[in-house]
Design a protein around this nucleic acid. Structure first.
Lengths: 377, 377
DNA sequence: GTAGTTCGTAAGGTTAACTAACAAACATGT
DNA sequence: ACATGTTTGTTAGTTAACCTTACGAACTAC
């Protein structure tokens, strides 16, 4: 795990040839994942569970012990014949992960986390409407702050950015930061000397729900803020789409004769669900708060229903201000989706308000680095 | 390729440990894929393209030559210094693939195909409303017919079945055949002695669009027949969903105060788009054929719009009777999806009528076997 | 005709899996 | 108490799949 020269083990799609050492690293990562999933396993347990021999497992474990990523935790307390095995536990404090959240328009947020997703340090940096290279300078400065605050070896830096981000981390368009067709990871890697992973902020928030809030492998996360964005996990992986624009549901029309939207169409979902228009509607109808929220929730449900059906989702998570989302809006949305999609062979979908708060993107950035660099997902 | 003992190379999700021979097979498959993608490559081309050494590539190529899956095609006609390389071509006639389509309620259809997807032989078997074990007997008989008709080594049998099919091929529910929680692949493998892959019919049709009709890696295919079903490819892979029920969009409500549906709700998409209700509506309004079809198309578009936005799809393919689909229905649907989702950073989605006709499922079954057994996708 | 380039193969090294065998540490039965 | 059997983790040696180095064959260019 200390030396990472060649690329990652290929998935079914990103195909490339593999060398024996790719297999070795994959197997080391697999053992690490197993120890994270089931702390206290012994080498013999791992061998039985994986099908590799005890000899090979011992070698893989020795590598992880040498790297400090796992530790022996004394003999197994069992009442069985035979020599008791040695329990193995993960050591989440062995490494630090740096995480950046660029989604806030006024302040860049950063944190140092351990491998369990605990926030160890926080730093931030005003953006002051910096654009392009000036924004890059602010981001780099914040990254340096984080690197200086880290007290352990750093696995890597994860960056959650708004906008369209390609699969390779290239930023196709991020208007709030003035970047287009911009390579962010390269300069940051050069400046910091550690691996950098750039990903869309909404996708990272969804990844965080999965890893740190017991989310399912197939889930939809909707973020309600200045606009309305969504991210989708299928089989645990974020969906990028044909133009890296997946999740852009804010401009689906839900009310053909509704009010004008900035995009030029009328009655887009955002004209109901984004925070500014929603608070304006609430202010304009003082005594009808619950009805307005329920109406917004039904419009959301109208968009969710086909998605939930087509993807057979069981979980939708909503992020955003609790006072707007957590009550009638969520309930109305859940009811409409249930009523419009219910079939006998599918359990009803569950909508819930995110428990991750403002740290969703930071946690997702850490989860992403954890996965890409150590294979733990 | 002749010996296939251990499992397949793992993807990012289906994780397991890998042995050196798994890597070897993955690499052999990669080379085969490369030769299918770019016929006429030389060993040296492959080495440059993949990063492996010429020595290793020669070994992998020797394996494929010995299996007859590729062939040398004389020296490269080039005007360059140096020894000309030997061109390598795929040999699609080297193997046969058996394919079964169980989606028709009255007749089981089967075919023998080559590795290019050309149909070499066709067989069929009346179902006569057989259910459960009796249906299995019909399926097995047809599979035997196909095996007897094959003139080359058989890669495997692909089966496209209606109903809910789990990722491992287990049939969770297929009401038209009277199967529930039913292991179809096991008995067929025992009877035929060749690998069997079972998959949902709609998913296979989508796979066929991708491989044999130049479909994108992210596409939605909607089949309009007795009911309305859909299948979704994300990154080239079929989406199964949390309960293997992905694609079931027929019972999304599009008209809350519409007519009663068999499912117990009102105004489901099927009450507009399935062939029986649609033909009934056309018969009931003799002079308004185009308007009725356009209305059906708009209801479809209403369901497609959120899906297209959330997944950033660029392609939707409609399968079913051309006289209903190919005209005003498709145009109205395309227009509504465009009008309801258009945003500046995304190219508009393209709806089209499938060109694969009745063979979509058979072709998909062959493509699936090709991919699972020979790694060509 | 000579030099330079490119292709495919041969020989031998390195790595990462395997099998076989063994000492250590435990429970159980006499 | 003590032999017996079980389970664990390690050592020693084998096999497989990649690598590097080197070489003959076949072509172009001067």
């Amino acid at each position: 795990m200390s030396t990472r020269v060649s690329g990652r083990y290929p998935t079914s799609r990103s195909r490339r040839l593999v060398r024996p050492e790719d297999g070795r690293r994959h197997n080391v990562e697999f053992v690490l994942q197993s120890v994270y999933d089931s702390p206290g396993l012994t080498r013999a347990d791992l061998a039985r569970q994986t099908g590799l021999t005890r000899v090979t497992i011992s070698e893989l474990v020795a590598q992880l012990l040498a790297d400090g990523l796992i530790a022996e935790a004394g003999p197994n307390q069992q009442v069985r014949p035979g020599k008791p095995g040695t329990r193995l536990d993960p050591v989440p404090e062995a490494r630090d992960i740096l995480a950046l959240d660029l989604s806030n328009q006024s302040t860049l947020r950063g944190a140092v986390l351990d491998l369990r997703g605990r926030v160890l340090e926080r730093r931030q940096q005003p953006l002051d409407k910096a654009q392009g290279p000036a924004a890059l300078a602010r981001v780099t400065a914040l990254a340096h702050d984080l690197a200086a605050a880290a007290k352990h070896l750093v696995v890597g830096l994860g960056v959650g950015s708004p906008g369209l981000i390609a699969a390779d981390g290239r930023i196709l368009a991020a208007t709030s930061l003035g970047w287009s067709d911009f390579e962010l990871a390269g300069p940051l890697e050069a400046a910091l000397g550690c691996p950098v992973e750039v990903c869309n902020d909404a996708n990272l928030a969804a990844v965080a729900e999965r890893r740190f809030a017991q989310g399912h492998d197939n889930l939809l996360r909707v973020q309600i803020a200045t606009g309305v964005g969504a991210a989708l996990l299928v089989g645990g992986d974020p969906v990028l789409g044909e133009h890296s624009a997946a999740g852009e549901i804010g401009h689906v029309v839900v009310e053909p004769d509704g009010v004008d939207c900035l995009c030029g169409k009328r009655g887009c979902l955002e004209t109901w669900l984004a925070v500014p228009p929603l608070t304006a509607r609430l202010a304009a109808a003082p005594g009808r708060r619950d009805q307005v929220l329920a109406q917004a929730g039904r419009h959301l449900g109208q968009v969710l229903a086909p998605i939930v059906s087509a993807l057979d989702l069981s979980q939708v998570v909503l992020g955003g201000p609790a006072d707007l989302i957590a009550g009638p809006l969520l309930e109305a949305s859940q009811r409409l989706v249930g009523d419009h999609t219910r079939v006998d062979f599918r359990a009803p979908v569950t909508l819930s308000h995110s428990t991750l708060g403002d740290d969703a993107v930071l946690l997702g950035a850490a989860a992403h680095v954890l996965r890409r660099r150590l294979g733990v997902q």
